[in-house]
Structures are given as C-alpha cells and as structure tokens.
Amino acid sequence: MEKAPHFVTDLAHLPTSAHGPRSATWWGTLGFILIEGTGFALAAAAYFYLMGQPETWPPGQAPPDWLWGTAQLILMLASLLPNLWTDRVAHQEDLRKVRVGLVVMSAVGLLTLVVRAFEFGALNCRWDDNAYGSIVWVLLGLHATHLVTDIGDTLVLTALMFTRHVEPRRYTDVTDNCVYWNFVVLAWVPLWGLLYVVPRLV
C-alpha cells in the first residue's frame, strides 16, 4: 500500500553550485592536501632523522646551489598574485578574465617545471651517493610531482574554458585548482628552507 510521504520542505530553490567549503569538491581537495601535506611532513622528518646519523651534513658534498632554488621560491611566491586574481575572477564568473588567468597560470606552471629541472642539476649530489643525496632527491621529486599534477590540471581546465563546457560548476573547479596551487606554493617554502638553508646552518 502506498502512503503519501510527509514532505516538510521543498529545496528546489537551493543553488546547484557554490565555491569553497559549501561544495563537496573543495572538501575533497582539502582531504588530498592533508594527505600530501602529511607525506611532505614525514619526508621532512626523515630528512631530520638522517641528519642525525653522519658527522657532517651534508656528508662530503656542498649544499645545493642557491640560484635555482631561490629563483623557484621567488617565482612561486610571485605566482600567488595571478593565482589569487584568477580565484577572484572565477568567483565573479567572468569568463574572459578567467581564461586570461588560466593561461597565465599555465605558463607560470610550465616555467616552474623548467626551473625545477635546473634545480635538480644544481643539487651537488646524486640520489645514489648517500642517504643525504637520497632524501634531497626524494623531497625535491615529491614536490615536483605535485607541480606536474597541478599543472596538468590547470592545462586541462584552461582547455575546458575554451570549449562549450563552460557552466557555473567549471568556475568552482577553477577556484579549487587555485586552492591546490596555493598549497603547492606554501609547501615549497619550508621545503626550500630544508633543502637550501638547513645544510648551511649546521
């Protein structure tokens, strides 16, 4: 026997997309940021742990050269400006500006990859030299994978914004992508300190 359900409200008026903590994707992004942040923290802890083993640190090598790592730091911090701008215009759902922002961010992202390649070349160690070399390469490589995935995401989003798939949800995708890039940049600051400053302090 079918009984009439007891409706208490009608939610048809609710919006179908929103930015930030109101959307599910934002929380999903946050979840993955937590996971990856934990990964970074543990790798950094391993760095400090290994630092306690040999007499000197770095053991027998010169610390990584300043130039490229610091250039990367400056480039990344500077990239926060277009990133935050893209985030703002995506909130405003201004398609033209969002396209500009994404193109800029794609270019900046590819540039950071180029700089990263030079960074590897200026580490003054190989991963198979000793445990110091191993952890340095892994830390830099771990951050590089985050660069690659975020840039891949940015490129796909940029392409999407030039297709007929533009709809309100795409703008929330853009803001989530901006959140992730902020994380990638902010993760680099302590890593830069670990890779470039710490070996000069001890």
């Binding site: 083993q53 040999p54 445990a131």
Partner: peptide, 30 residues
C-alpha cells in the same frame, strides 16, 4: 597514517631499484 607507509615503502623500493641509501648504514642511512 597511510602516507607514512607509502613514504617508507617508496624509500624501500628506491633503495632496492635505483640505489638510494635510506636504510643503508654504510652510506648514512639507518
């Protein structure tokens, strides 16, 4: 918790396959 085992098993496989020294005491590992 799981990132810890991913980090450690990745280090293990790198020690085994590409010659890193995370766990090799002779080269500063532990």
């Amino acid at each position: 918790a799981m990132p810890a085992v991913m980090v450690s098993s990745s280090m293990l496989i790198m020690d085994r396959l590409i010659g890193t020294h995370f766990f090799n005491p002779a080269e500063g590992g532990d």
